[in-house]
Structure formats: structure tokens, C-alpha cells
Design a protein around this nucleic acid. Structure first.
Lengths: 230, 230
DNA sequence: GGTGGCAGATTGTCAGATAATCTAGGAAGT
DNA sequence: ACTTCCTAGATTATCTGACAATCTGCCACC
């Protein structure tokens, strides 16, 4: 008599997914390389095409492989942005303490400023792009466009650092930040815009330390708008 | 005549996946909560059950939802270990610029050190946990366990900051990092362990600045092991 | 009252068919 | 000879219908 199976039997599609991964790994396939088509995989694994599809669609969702209609399956190119997009909404992250979000943003955004200053010195267009956003902010009439420009400013700051993983992570944080961003009073707009302007001018002048302090205070100002203290 | 569509039309299963995510997010569902079954979702979205399945299987693969035979669909609990398992093997991880990864890690890990020092002062167990990992590292015989302990050290450091988003992001970075971690020479182990020890002792003493410099140099040492300079 | 099994619900898997889309190569026109 | 257009084949995308496997809760039986 066989031992009882404590764990649920492995699903066929999971076996298929594992076999496809093995196929890629064992043959040292690189992104862009062709894979057998769905019918061939079905025959190869001895299962139906549907199970193959469920496996390939799962792998595709994660970016491990790519499927193009009329072309076939290829090994994919994973990027951090895709993962954060799917993971970002998840309830597990929604429960995060707002104060932690503020401090996380402070660490990341102040941390990149040295990089930004260095790249600004090499490429003046970064200062121009940031200044253009600040100028636009002054003409904003409603809260919605002001928020968009505020997000654009902070995102461009991260972009200017040249560190792509942080750009993706920053986008994710902004999703959660939006909640208590909407409670900004109109009188506070101008203060924020002035902060932005001082930050980029300090950076352009190569004065990193003042820029860091300004940005820290800027992000910290959200702390006063927290809905409730628990 | 209709305008040509520059981008490929969105697949039905991707729309379905997005709708399911919306369903979860808009109703503030938590892990373990029930979802409509596949047939109900199919009717709800006006598509076939098969397309719903491809969407649910993709989401399940990522851990966003769970499906149990005879029971139904529930909201799942994402854990990064699952991502590590699926993504760790993938050749495309080379696509991320290693230098960017190093600098990203430097920003995050040095950025949390002030928080860590503060929380260490309040709760001595953090120092003990970190020191225990360092002690274990000294007894490591093979590369595999040493790498595990190294990851554990850096992860615990982030945990000690109390900033959960950064812990999750750090886990994600380690997935991308592990590729060129395996090229560490045995002679370099000891150097790394000594660095770890100096860092936590500086933190425990409240000397944040030396700890930051030590950690920066520690992470930067990976730079010398980069496979190729492009 | 406890225990076993049965019935309904739900996901898992299969087969076959049609639509949509892409690539390559040939046909037609210049 | 060169370019343009179009068709044919290949491949994924989607649908329909059916049956198997598995879990939960209830009910009958002891």
C-alpha cells in the first residue's frame, strides 16, 4: 500500500512549467531564442495542448517566456517594472504603515541625489526637464494636474539617477502614496513647488547636502497630513 | 476607415487578469477571502471559462490568488521565495546592469542604517540576531551556505530597520543579484565576514557614519568581480 | 450521538474547431 | 531588375462541450 500523499498531487500544468524551465536551462537558451510550439510541447510532454497553454501563459505572465501570435514561443526578458506592476496592487502591501512609506521614500529619493548631481553635471537636459516640470506646476489650476506634476517631478528625479530598479520601485510606492496625497491643501502647493525648485538648483550647483535636507523635509511634510495616528 | 492600431490589441486573458485584480483591490479583499468561481467570473466578464482560467492560472502562478479543487478561488499570499524559485534560473537576469544593482543596493542598505541604529538601541535582540548570523558565517564550509548566510545578514539588516517595503524590495534585488555572487573566492569570505562584524558593532555603539562607509565599501567590493566591462 | 458515505459544487483536464495574426515567398505591375 | 501587393502556411487566441478528480457539508445508518 502506498504512503498517503501529504501534499496535493502536482498539477500537470505545473509539471509542464517546470519542464519548460528545464528545457531553457539545460540548453542554455538566451532571451529571444525559439522554443517548440504548443503542439510540439504537448506531444513532447505527453499532455494536452490546453495544459501546455496554461503553463506557457503562467510563464509568460511573469516574463519568463514570450508568445506572439503567428510566430511562436521565445525566451523572454524579465524586467523589474513588470513584477512591481503585478505585485503592487496586492493587499499584502496595502496594509503598510504610511509612516513606513514616507521613510522609505525619503531613503530612496535622498539616496539618489548624489547620482543625480553627477549626471546633471554631465547632461544639462536633466536640469531642463526638471525645471520644465516645476514651471508647469506653477500654472496648475486643479488638484489633479498638480498631483500629476508632483509625481512626474519625483519620478524624473529618480530617472535622472539612471538607476532603473529604483525608478520601478518608486512607481510602486507612488501607487500607495496617492491615498493621502489627495488631502493636500491648496496653500501647500506653493510650498511644495518652492521646495522642488530649491532642490534642483542646489543639485545643479553641485551642493548635494542642502538638496538632501530640503528633500527630506519636503517628503516629511506628508507626515502632518496622516489621516489617523494609531 | 478606422485608425490603425499601433499597439497589439490587449489579450482577453490579460483584461480578465486585470479585472480580477481590480475586483480584489476595489473590495479590499484580504488573503483567504473567497472569489467568485470560474463560471461566475466568465459570465461576469462576458468571456469563456477557458480565458478566465488562463488569467487565474497566471495570477495563481504569481501567488496573487489560490485555487483549490472542489473548493474555489481565494486571494493568496505572495511570498518572494516563490519568485526566487521561478526567476532564479532565468538567463535574462543578465539583462539588468550589474552596476545599477550594486548602486541600488548601496543606496537602500546604507540608507536604512540610521533607522537600524535607532531600533538597535531600543531592542537589543536585533544585535544578537545579526551577531548570531556573523558567528555562523565563520563556520561555513561551502559556498552555498556562506551565500545563504550573507543574504540572511543583509536581509536581517533591512528587517531591523522596520521598513517592510524595503525588505520586500531587497528580496527582489537579491534574486537578480545571485548570478554574480557565485564567483566569490573563498579568500574573500573572511573579508566579508569581518565587514559584517564591524558594521554591527559600529551600529551598536551608535556610530552610524563609520558603519555606512564600511557597508558601502562592502557592497562595492562586488564591483571588482563583474564578469565583463561593457 | 458518532460515523460513514453520498451528492453537489468546483477546479482539473481533455478533444476538437474556428478566428486572428504574423512571416515568408510568390505574383503582378512598373 | 526592382518594388509592391497578396496569398498560403504556420502559430497562437479563443470558444464550446464534455468528463474526471477532489473537496465540503449533509444525511442516513448504526
Amino acid at each position: 500500500m502506498a504512503l498517503f500523499q501529504a501534499l496535493p498531487r502536482r498539477k500537470i500544468r505545473d509539471q509542464a512549467a517546470a519542464q519548460i524551465k528545464d528545457f531553457i536551462a539545460s540548453r542554455r537558451l538566451k532571451p529571444g531564442d525559439r522554443l517548440p510550439n504548443e503542439n510540439e510541447l504537448a506531444v513532447l510532454f505527453g499532455i494536452s495542448r490546453l495544459s501546455v497553454r496554461e503553463a506557457t501563459k503562467s510563464l509568460e505572465f511573469l516574463g519568463i517566456i514570450e508568445a506572439k501570435t503567428g510566430v511562436g514561443l521565445t525566451v523572454g526578458q524579465i524586467d523589474v517594472a513588470r513584477l512591481t506592476e503585478h505585485l503592487g496592487f496586492h493587499p499584502a502591501l496595502h496594509g503598510v504603515d504610511p509612516i513606513q512609506l514616507i521613510e522609505t521614500r525619503t531613503i530612496i529619493e535622498t539616496g539618489v541625489l548624489p547620482h543625480v548631481a553627477r549626471r546633471m553635471a554631465d547632461d544639462a537636459t536633466w536640469f531642463e526637464r526638471l525645471e520644465a516640470i516645476v514651471d508647469q506646476s506653477c500654472t496648475a489650476r486643479d488638484l489633479k494636474t498638480w498631483i500629476e506634476l508632483d509625481i512626474a517631478f519625483h519620478r524624473t528625479l529618480l530617472e535622472a539617477s539612471g538607476l532603473e530598479p529604483l525608478v520601478a520601485f518608486g512607481d510602486l510606492l507612488h501607487v500607495f502614496f496617492q491615498r493621502f496625497r489627495e488631502s493636500v491643501k491648496k496653500a501647500e502647493w506653493k510650498v511644495g513647488i518652492d521646495s522642488h525648485r530649491r532642490i534642483i538648483h542646489s543639485l545643479a550647483a553641485g551642493d548635494v547636502a542642502p538638496a538632501i535636507e530640503e528633500l527630506r523635509a519636503h517628503i516629511d511634510s506628508h507626515r502632518q497630513r496622516l489621516p489617523r495616528v494609531s
